[in-house]
Amino acid sequence: MHRAVVEWFAANARDLPWRGDCSAWGVLVSEIMLQQTPVVRVRPVWAEWMARWPAPADLAAEPAGEVLRAWGRLGYPRRALRLHEAAKELVSAHGGKVPSTYAQLLALPGIGTYTAAAVAAFAFGRRETVVDTNIRRVQARLVSGLALPAQSLTAAEARLAASLLPEDPGRSVQWNAAVMELGALICTARSPKCDLCPVRDECAWIAAGQPEPTYIPKGQPWAGTDRQVRGAVMAVLRAADSPVQAELLWAPAAVLESTPIPHPGAVASSLRRLHDLNTHAPQLERALAGLLADGLAQLSPAGYHLPH
């Protein structure tokens, strides 16, 4: 099984810039950006970040507002702030270098168990059990005969992943990357390409007759949610190079059409997109309060702006 999956990976892996000859910092940035975000959206932003901030010290020296502005529309912008804090910690406690052990990585701000294991494995070749959504799905089908893994990671799944990990460190890194890629390209959630799977003949799910999942996975809603409103407000603040007056955030779209906006065109366009949502006042209040509480925005007498 190990050989079949690893050989498939060697022949079919995507050419991604954070694989192969990439710094540990580049791997760490990629892992943060790839959380809940597809590769196609991450790739151009990652390239821009690495050109602008090729080392932790470069990012640490930037104000938080610039980091959030460069994050753009990747979503979940608190990840940008966590990465910024991690960069500062790398400079102050690790000489500007990414540490190589799981324990050291886990101690960094905003770094969880998955990211610590992934960076230790993919950047430093360490034998660590890496378990993401793709790996969990492959394990569920290949070994457990289930259409989908549990809705959240269980202790049994973690033990299974550890039991499947090859003993040789180099082979374990290959296995982690290969299973993850197999889940991303072949063993997908909705339309698995079983005819192309290198371990089809060993798959417990196929042997069981491909039973239906015990639940229907639901994507996170977006339209009409507080997350959508927060994202629209953040787009306004990213476009502005000076504070945005509070009354402009609250003004109805019709008022914006007849009121000169003292900001460049990108800000005016973002404001119109915000008000095209027809957000009710309580929802906008929640969105603004949440952005302030999360440190993603600040409020001064002149208006709302990205953090300094």
Rank of each mutant, 00 (worst) to 15 (best):
L106E: 13
G96N: 10
L34G: 04
W46R: 13
P56F: 14
K88R: 15
S92R: 13
T101Q: 06
I111T: 12
E85A: 15
P38V: 01
I111P: 08
L68M: 06
P63R: 14
A93R: 06
D15R: 15
T37V: 06
L106I: 01
G110Y: 12
G95I: 04
C22F: 09
G65E: 03
V45Q: 12
P56Y: 07
L74Y: 05
T101M: 04
V45A: 15
P63N: 03
A103N: 05
G72W: 15
A51N: 12
Y114Q: 03
W25F: 15
A107T: 00
E62A: 14
W49V: 11
R79V: 00
S100C: 10
A70L: 11
G96S: 07
K88W: 00
Y114S: 02
W18C: 10
A24N: 14
G72K: 12
R78S: 01
L34D: 10
L83M: 10
L105I: 07
M50R: 04
G110I: 10
Y76Q: 06
A93N: 08
M50G: 11
V39F: 14
L83R: 08
V91L: 09
A107E: 03
T101R: 09
Q35R: 06
L34T: 02
E31S: 07
R19C: 02
I111W: 01
T101E: 13
P44C: 06
K97Q: 13
S100T: 01
V40M: 03
A70T: 09
L59D: 01
Q36H: 11
P99S: 01
L28A: 12
R14M: 02
T113L: 05
P17A: 08
D58P: 05
L34F: 13
A55W: 12
H94Q: 07
R73G: 08
R78D: 07
P99A: 01
V42A: 13
D15A: 09
A47W: 12
Q104A: 15
S100M: 03
L90F: 00
P44R: 08
L81A: 14
W53I: 04
P77C: 06
I32R: 11
M33I: 11
P17K: 09
V39G: 01
